[in-house]
Amino acid sequence: MKIVVTGSLGHISKPLTQELVQKGHSVTVISRKAERIKAIETLGAQAAIGTMEDVGFLTTAFNGADVVYVMEALAYGSFFDKNLDFIEANTQMGLNYKQAIDQSGVKQVVHLSSIGAHTNKGTGILKFHYNVENILKELPDNVAIKFMRPVGFYYNMYQYIQSIKTQGAIIQNYGGDEKEPWVSPLDIAAVIAEEIELPFEGRKIRNIASDEVSPNEIAGTLGEAIGKPDLKWFVISDEQMLSGLKATGMNPKTAQGFVKMNAARRTGTLYQDYYKNKPAFGKVKLADFAKEFAVVFNQE
């Protein structure tokens, strides 16, 4: 099949491209950066250089594809752009995808959504996933769409490194012994590759997870990996969390979105649909990720 992959050579798109090429598919990878062309071609794929904001470019890139895999990915540093409305910018990207899919005539779409996309209430920064899912659902009925909803990515734990090094603890506005799901991008890529080769019909939602662990278990596992077996996870108030994120230079509205997202983890709102449609776990466990975490921790 001819498959178009957005997301350049990111954490999901690169292993996805590798697997699809290995399975004999013709893959085109969309990237913003021309300097990625060689790396993309080395994987056995073709490169299409342009932006998600350019509907004409997207339409041309999608033309003739059997399947397109779309995800919202803003440029690095967008969290700190004081002039950017993060939810609005990602929602606009969904509108661009919808227009390009419609104009190109693509009939099979895989969309990287997220846990929390089941509601537009109380999920903070994740609200744009709800928005984009509903935008894509406006496409004609003969366009089959698979919405992939992964849970929190392991690599988001890299944000804990700074507080571990400066304050000797993981500090968030949620915590405790309640288990929550996490996922590896490798497991997400594997599920997407699987879905691309399964029949497309109507609209499908699939949750994706690798493991379930509590915040306190995360502190223990990461602590062991970095040689700090007594590492603790401390819970602070929403107000303290918001103040801390603003102090790093994060866009205040974006910071509020992160705080609300974590609050949704604390109340369970974020996981309502997940526990109703709980998936089989992938292969990569927290203990596996902890080894990678330790390498990055010791490099910084």
Score class of each variant (00 low, 15 high):
K2W: 09
K2M: 09
T6E: 09
V27P: 00
V29C: 09
I30C: 05
S31Q: 05
R32K: 14
I37A: 08
A39E: 13
G44C: 10
A47K: 05
A47Q: 03
D54H: 07
L58R: 04
T59N: 08
A61K: 05
A61N: 04
F62Y: 12
F62V: 13
F62M: 12
N63E: 15
G64N: 14
A65K: 07
D66N: 13
D81Y: 01
N90S: 02
M93F: 00
Q103R: 13
Q108E: 08
H111L: 05
S114I: 01
S114V: 02
G116R: 04
G116P: 06
G116T: 03
T119Q: 12
K121S: 04
K121C: 00
F128A: 00
L136K: 14
D141V: 10
V143Y: 01
I145Q: 04
K146L: 00
M148I: 15
M148H: 12
G152P: 00
G152W: 12
N156P: 03
Y158V: 02
Y160H: 14
A169T: 11
I170E: 08
I170T: 07
I171M: 11
Q172R: 07
Q172T: 10
Y174Q: 04
G175S: 09
E180Q: 12
W182G: 01
A189M: 14
A193T: 15
E195V: 07
G202E: 04
I205Q: 09
N207V: 04
I208A: 05
A209H: 05
P215K: 10
I218R: 15
T221F: 04
A225C: 11
G227V: 11
G227T: 10
K228T: 13
K232F: 07
W233G: 00
S237G: 10
D238C: 05
L242H: 11
S243V: 06
G244C: 06
L245R: 04
A247K: 08
T248V: 11
T248H: 06
G257N: 09
K260Q: 14
A263W: 06
A264P: 05
D273V: 00
P279E: 03
P279G: 08
F289L: 11
V295Q: 12
N298Q: 15
Q299Y: 10
